[in-house]
Computed example of a mutant assay.
Amino acid sequence: MKFPRRRRDPVEVNLTPLIDVVFLLLIFFMVSTTFETRQALELELPESESGQAMEAAPVTVVVTGEGDYRLGERVHTAGTLGDALAAEAEQAREHGLVIEADGRAAHAAVVRVLDRAAGLEIRRVRIATAAAATTQAETP
């Protein structure tokens, strides 16, 4: 006895719901992710009339008005600054070190950074300043 063969429908996978879910997940992660570049510190940089524009250096030490030090994303005290700077010394020797000191910071705090840099043989040290505001008197 010969049985008739059933005709099978071709198997299809509908990708439309899968694509919808992927796009919804992509939108969810894009909206819920925070993009944090660098925390802003309220610094009053000293003004300089003879300052020159420079490229950003990979090693930057920030001296706050309270006398704290910030290297990268970590806050350091005077005691831990030397070890933290020693970890970045090779890169600082190659590309230079930038010191961003608040105008209200004590002179001793800036000298401490310069002293640690000299002890690690970092020779290219720059101090960040703000451009001086030039005011011209109006003539009658």
Rank of each mutant, 00 (worst) to 15 (best):
E44T: 13
R104G: 14
Q39V: 12
M1Q: 01
A105D: 01
V110L: 05
V98E: 07
E94Y: 12
S50L: 12
A133G: 06
T77D: 00
A78L: 12
R7E: 14
R104M: 10
A109R: 10
A89F: 06
I27G: 12
E44L: 11
P140S: 06
V62C: 04
A84E: 10
N14W: 03
T16Y: 09
S48F: 12
A87T: 09
R70H: 14
P46L: 08
H95R: 09
R8V: 12
E66P: 08
A53N: 07
R5C: 06
E66Y: 09
A86S: 07
M54V: 04
G72T: 10
A78S: 09
L85F: 05
L81G: 05
A89G: 02
T77C: 00
V11F: 09
H95K: 10
T16N: 08
D102L: 04
V59E: 04
A131F: 03
R126C: 03
V125Q: 02
L18N: 01
G119I: 11
A137N: 02
T80D: 12
T37E: 13
E12F: 09
V113Q: 13
V98A: 12
R6S: 09
P17F: 05
L97W: 01
A132M: 06
T16F: 00
A105Y: 04
E36M: 07
A109D: 14
V11N: 01
I122M: 00
L26T: 05
R124A: 10
A118C: 00
A117W: 04
E49W: 04
Q91N: 11
R116A: 14
G72W: 06
T139R: 14
A118F: 05
R116Y: 07
I127R: 04
A40D: 11
D102N: 08
E55D: 13
V75C: 12
H107Q: 14
E121Y: 00
E90C: 02
R5D: 15
V11C: 07
E121D: 13
R74P: 10
V111G: 05
T129W: 02
E138S: 11
E100D: 10
E100I: 03
A132L: 06
A128S: 07
M1R: 05
T80F: 09
V13C: 03
H95S: 15
T135V: 00
D115E: 15
E12Y: 14
L45M: 06
R126E: 12
H95Y: 10
T16P: 01
T33P: 03
F28Y: 12
E44C: 06
G79A: 15
A106N: 08
T139I: 12
Q52G: 00
E42S: 11
E36D: 03
G51H: 01
L97T: 04
A130H: 02
V111D: 13
